[in-house]
Every structure is written in structure tokens, then in C-alpha cells.
Simulated assay, not measured.
Amino acid sequence: MAARGSRNAQRARTEAERVRLHNARRDWHVRQIARRTRDNVIAVVAGVIIVAGAVVSQVVHAQVTAPEPTPTPSPGVEQSEAPGEQILPSETPAPEPVPTQTPAE
């Protein structure tokens, strides 16, 4: 029985198939690298946007909310130089005891 083609033709087809597979693998690898690079860039940009948004929202929140109110002095009590310390008036009347009646025995 005679072979369909010569050995050289079969060898050429085999080598052509190897070259085709090699080029396909190389192209796939190059596309993978490009995709990973693109995905990394997108992730970094999204992360920067999220962090910047958080910082901006904190700054806006701090500017919009009113500061804590300062305590107002009570009438008849003077404020001292030190914060949180009060000077009481020198003449405060002492409360008078109220007489109570005890039941007779």
C-alpha cells in the first residue's frame, strides 16, 4: 500500500501545526498580560476614587455639622479664668430648717 503523501509533506504539516499552536499560546499569553494590566489599572483608579470620596465626605461632614455648643453661665454664678471652673457668690443664704410636728403620744 502506498502512503498518501511523502514523508516530507507529513513532516511539514506537523511542523506547521506546532507553529500554529505555539503562536496561539503566545498570543493568549500576551492577551492575559494585557488584561491583568488593565484590571490592575482599573482597580487602582477605583480605589483612589473611593478613598478620595471618603476623605471629601469627612471634610464636608465636618464643615456642615455645627460645632458643639459652649456652656452658658448660670445666673448668679461668675465664670473664672479657667474653663469649667466656676466661682460661687460669697453670700449664699443657708436654707432654714422647716419645723415639723411630731404626733403626740
Rank of each mutant, 00 (worst) to 15 (best):
R36T: 08
Q79P: 02
Q86D: 02
D27E: 15
V19S: 04
T14V: 10
T70Y: 03
A54G: 04
E15W: 14
D39K: 06
A94M: 09
I49S: 02
T14F: 12
P95D: 08
E105W: 07
L88C: 13
E105F: 08
R7Y: 13
Q86S: 03
P67M: 03
E105D: 11
E81N: 03
A62C: 07
S90W: 10
P89V: 14
R26E: 11
I50C: 07
E85K: 08
V19W: 02
T65R: 15
A62S: 10
A104C: 03
P103M: 13
V48D: 00
A62G: 10
R35K: 06
V51W: 05
P103H: 11
A3L: 13
W28C: 07
D27Y: 14
I87Q: 09
S57V: 02
A54T: 08
V64C: 03
T92N: 04
G84C: 08
P103K: 15
A3R: 05
A54D: 00
V41W: 02
V60G: 02
S57I: 04
D39I: 04
V44L: 06
A34E: 09
V77F: 11
Q63I: 04
V55R: 01
T92L: 15
R36G: 06
P89D: 15
R20Q: 03
R18T: 03
I42R: 12
A9V: 11
G47M: 02
I33C: 08
G53K: 00
T100R: 14
P103I: 15
R31C: 01
V44C: 04
A24C: 02
P99L: 08
W28H: 07
N23Y: 09
R26A: 09
R36H: 10
V51A: 14
T92F: 14
V56C: 05
A9R: 06
A54F: 09
R35V: 01
A66P: 04
V45M: 04
P93L: 15
R26D: 03
A52Q: 06
G84T: 10
V51D: 00
R13C: 07
V19K: 10
L88G: 01
H22Q: 09
H22S: 05
G5W: 07
R26N: 02
E78D: 06
E78K: 13
V30P: 00
A54I: 12
G76M: 13
I33Y: 11
E105S: 09
V77H: 06
A3V: 05
Q79H: 05
A3F: 08
R18H: 05
G53H: 00
T37A: 13
D39A: 14
E68I: 03
